[in-house]
Design a protein around this nucleic acid. Sequence first.
DNA 1: CAAGATTAAAGTGTCGACAATCGACGATTA
DNA 2: TAATCGTCGATTGTCGACACTTTAATCTTG
Lengths: 249, 249
Amino acid sequence: MRPMSLPVGLPALADSDLVGQIARILMQAIVQGRLPPGSKVVEAGVARELGVSRAPVREAARLLEKQGLLVASPRRGFFVRKLEIRNIDEIYDLRLCIERHAGVLAARNLTPQSREVLRRQIDVLHKTADLDDPARQVEEDYRFHRLIFEIADNRRLLRLFDDLAAELRMVIGLIGRLYDDPHEIARTHEPLLAAIEAGHPERITAHVDYHIGHAWREVGKLVRELTPPGGNSIASPSGILIPTNGVTV
Amino acid sequence: MRPMSLPVGLPALADSDLVGQIARILMQAIVQGRLPPGSKVVEAGVARELGVSRAPVREAARLLEKQGLLVASPRRGFFVRKLEIRNIDEIYDLRLCIERHAGVLAARNLTPQSREVLRRQIDVLHKTADLDDPARQVEEDYRFHRLIFEIADNRRLLRLFDDLAAELRMVIGLIGRLYDDPHEIARTHEPLLAAIEAGHPERITAHVDYHIGHAWREVGKLVRELTPPGGNSIASPSGILIPTNGVTV
DNA sequence: CAAGATTAAAGTGTCGACAATCGACGATTA
DNA sequence: TAATCGTCGATTGTCGACACTTTAATCTTG
């Protein structure tokens, strides 16, 4: 028998993907608030609770670290990232930056097909708005924006968006409620799509600025409400390696 | 009197950072071409050769994966990332995107002090140009751009730049020669700084576009020269795996 | 002789264990 | 009393081992 060529509609091999499962479980626990920001994630504890060894737990933690949900402190362990206002601002600032870029690229690559896909996703947004399911609404919102990145056709950029989205999902999850009226959210996507269809870079960036900036302000407001004044975070190390054993600066 | 703990000139505790050391060693091997793109990195082999166990090697590999030098394929191991033209283009495209943004932010935050730091780094670039030390030249070049990101004062953005720089360093290392005249490189930084000092977003982005775009084209040209026509990649970098001909040298 | 089946080797995923290290608590001292 | 130093428990860093999967080599068989 042939090795059976690639199953294209990937059925999610999640059966034997232990670290993936653990990562998902941890992520759930974080966004559901069972692991509050700043709390320590003890490898052995998680391992015992899940009936596995520490190795996969460790790898899962590293995965979540890459996504920004955890921060690692050498010899101290993993901690759930605290959401400072500063982090929120930095994330949204970066998102603004890449979303502008993606918008312009998407406009350049836009085909009738991809245009139709975007339009349909806006319909989905409108439909979802009636469901009173905030999590679903947020998810569909991200899906729209992700489509723009897919059309932009830069995998590196798409990966970055996914990372940012994971962090923002944590933020949203912790806030616990939607940051705006769902119908309003759905509506604000339309001028953005229109700008992309028109293909004028300035209009695109302007609309992205408006759209993302709005979410930024709303989320910032809510986070500021929820954050106790003495909130302090654990610094992310950002230890990046430089080849020629040069100093990191 | 305050306790005054921290000794100011702290000498980097990195002594017992085993995974960091291993990561550096592997990175060296990669950029020096001893581990050619596409080759397999066998955990046990590296571990035996370095006299350590597989665990820290694994972690080091994950670190390098995060930086994009390795790609992981479940149950198959780590491979040195192949540099396709497409990857180069995507990386430079993203770099262009964030470097514009950082430039504008830096201009907004610019102080006489930070301005002076940038100016001094350009001097360093000129001095280094005489040394005939390509690696050093590249390093000082990155340092200049990194300074811009530091001044921009968005840690998330800075981290992203470091990641991209690590990938680009690999590219440069593999190309083996500098992509341009060192003096020319030093000179082209001056109008960029001038634009930042002037603080006009349009001028900044224009100069960034010119500056980065130049490097982009040069690197692209060299990579295209060096790449055999049948170059194929092993996996897309985001954890989603696309099995292809797993050439292991 | 080539294509498929079979077997052997190599290598990753996971495990449990041990030593080194960190943080907290309490004893000691000025 | 307050600060410093040691001690102890908890937790990470690292190790070697084993099972299962993948890859390579060998053997059938038409």
